[in-house]
């Protein structure tokens, strides 16, 4: 929760999502993948967990991917999954998923990173796997067949 990671050439990144948003980046040419588990849309100050907030997670993910790219230019695409309202709750938590999605989409637009796939909303959690060899993002929901994005 609130963490992020990058990997390259064959490694796999995974996380579990409730109302949180999984932001997956992939550079097809470099076979470079990054995944952030965004909990909240925004922080004003420095974050001990940069992956926790959309506005710190995306710059940090790009920074770590550039480090792995070793001077090669980075051309990531994005895939998004998560943002469920799990207990069909009507409280303040109910809209956090939507706020996370809006914040991430806006930040990606500013960075000119195209969002090529989305698997968002609903009332169930998701287990996701990002394969750095192919860029495929596999989304699993309990009781349903996996979806590959």
């Amino acid at each position: 929760m609130g963490e992020l990671a990058v990997c390259q050439q064959g490694g796999c990144l995974r996380t579990l999502l409730g109302s949180c948003l999984g932001v997956a980046f992939y550079d097809r040419r470099l076979k470079l993948a990054g995944l952030a588990h965004v909990v909240l849309p925004h922080t004003e100050g420095p974050a001990d967990l940069p992956g926790k907030y959309a506005n710190t997670a995306i710059p940090e993910l790009l920074r770590q991917m550039r480090q792995l790219a070793k001077g090669e230019s980075l051309r990531p695409i994005a895939k998004l999954a998560g943002g469920a309202n799990m207990f069909n709750s009507s409280g303040s938590v109910a809209t956090i998923g939507e706020q996370n999605i809006a914040a991430v989409e806006r930040l990606l637009e500013e960075q000119r990173i195209p969002v090529v796939a989305r698997h968002l909303g609903g009332e169930q959690g998701r287990r996701i796997f990002l394969d750095s060899a192919t860029g495929q993002l596999t989304v699993e929901i309990a009781g349903l067949d996996p979806t590959v994005l």
Binding site: M1, G2, L16, L17, G18, S19, C20, V39, L40, D48, L49, K52, A84, M86, F87, N88, S89, G91, S92, V93, I96, Q124, G125, R126, R127, A142, G143
Partner: peptide, 24 residues
Amino acid sequence: PRLVRDYPQALLQFSLMNQASTSD
């Protein structure tokens, strides 16, 4: 009560979200 079947970590994330919004 409402019975749900889901991944344990996903359930907990949702329940902890309110506290997580103000603290690590």
